[in-house]
């Protein structure tokens, strides 16, 4: 089974939305809201698009509402990989 990790979040965000100033991505970011890391809703849509392309699963646009933090994103995406339908 595919596992999606915090490092995958870091890797995909860096590639598709750039690194925040001071590269705060390297730190303990699991529970830091994306907005505080400098990523807005466009950045999260872009992250979702890249996950779809890389892993071949569909992620609806409104799924980003379930991903306020990197930890929430990892948990949501792992549920999707496990076959849970999107809402």
């Amino acid at each position: 089974m595919t596992m999606f990790t915090l490092d995958d979040v870091r890797r995909i965000l860096r590639r598709c939305a750039g690194a925040p100033e001071g590269d705060a991505l390297d730190g303990d970011i699991a529970d830091v809201p994306f907005a505080e890391l400098g990523y807005d809703s466009l950045a999260l849509l872009e992250m979702a698009a890249h996950v779809q392309q890389e892993y071949g699963i569909r992620i609806p646009d409104d799924a980003i509402e379930e991903m306020p933090t990197p930890r929430a994103a990892v948990e949501y995406l792992n549920r999707r990989f496990a076959g849970e339908p999107s809402r």
């Binding site: 860096r14 598709c16 939305a17 750039g18 690194a19 925040p20 100033e21 400098g38 990523y39 466009l42 950045a43």
Partner: peptide, 8 residues
């Protein structure tokens, strides 16, 4: 230009 802005 900050990295975040370059990609945008």
């Amino acid at each position: 230009v900050p990295s975040r802005l370059i990609v945008q």
